[in-house]
Design a protein around this nucleic acid. Structure first.
Lengths: 152, 152
DNA sequence: AATGAAACGCGACGACT
DNA sequence: AGTCGTCGCGTTTCATT
């Protein structure tokens, strides 16, 4: 499943910029009728290229001002599923991946403040399979793209 | 700027689940009329709580199968803006932050394959202010929340 | 691609707290 | 003042041909 039809690419780009753009507006911009655009969007959704549409919320505007990346070091060979189940219980964990390198997993965590972050990390570190954690607190967010703009 | 009105919280949750949900549908679920929902959404947008609406694209379905986190070590005190300008040139970099700890910045990078990733990291490492990089390749993505579900 | 019916977005007005 | 609900019009969506 390689690249993308140039028209589909333009449709995806338009919907990434604003997921509520009307099919008619998109069609006008790329030279297609509204129903034709809808058919393509439906196809992109059914194939999984477009997973869905979501609101982009600014955590800072809601009082979530603290952001951190937490490396997890686990004992022996802990199964990815076990890690997932453990961290998924915390709504503060927005993403988690198993990674190569020294650490076993990398978590992206959002919290209201340092105190809140500290409490969450402490609870995660208390899991039996976690041997050690290493946190990097975000000082400033330089770039945040939706994922991803470049699909050429 | 403290917490969120319980109705606003439900509206945000609904729009995160599906940004194309009609105001009428949202209103029905939380017991409000469609115009009332729209007024609240407009306000949430103008205050910045909702930044916008976007399509969630699955990079894997487009052939972007490789994901990595790259720590950047920079010389002396390199300005955040300099780092941002340098990494923003690469569409493969989906997010970048300056962080506390050993490294100066942490990048989230998406690429077609290892070869592609290697080329990008190499180019970034070639920047004059970069003294060293440390990459962690993602093996499996355990969790990916939109950011963020828990806003209580 | 074009048509027509149903649904939706969006402004205006009036009532309530 | 602020927020809600009802109404009306223009637009959009979606199934059909």
């Amino acid at each position: 499943m390689p690249d993308l039809d140039p028209l589909d690419a333009q449709i995806v780009a338009a919907l990434q910029a604003d997921a509520r753009t009307s099919y008619a507006d998109i069609g006008e911009e790329i030279g297609l009728s509204a129903p034709a655009v809808k058919r393509r969007v439906d196809r992109l959704r059914s194939t999984g290229a477009i997973r869905g549409f979501t609101a982009v919320v600014d955590p800072a505007a809601l009082g979530w001002t603290t952001e951190a990346f937490v490396e997890l070091y686990c004992e022996g060979r802990t199964s990815p599923e076990k890690i997932r189940a453990a961290v998924a219980r915390f709504p503060e964990v927005v993403s988690a991946s198993t990674v190569t390198g020294d650490a076993d997993a990398l978590l992206h965590v959002l919290a209201r403040d340092i105190k809140h972050l500290e409490r969450v990390v402490e609870q995660i570190a208390a899991e039996r399979f976690v041997t050690r954690t290493r946190s990097s607190i975000v000082m400033s967010s330089l770039l945040r793209r939706t994922e991803s703009s470049g699909l050429a």
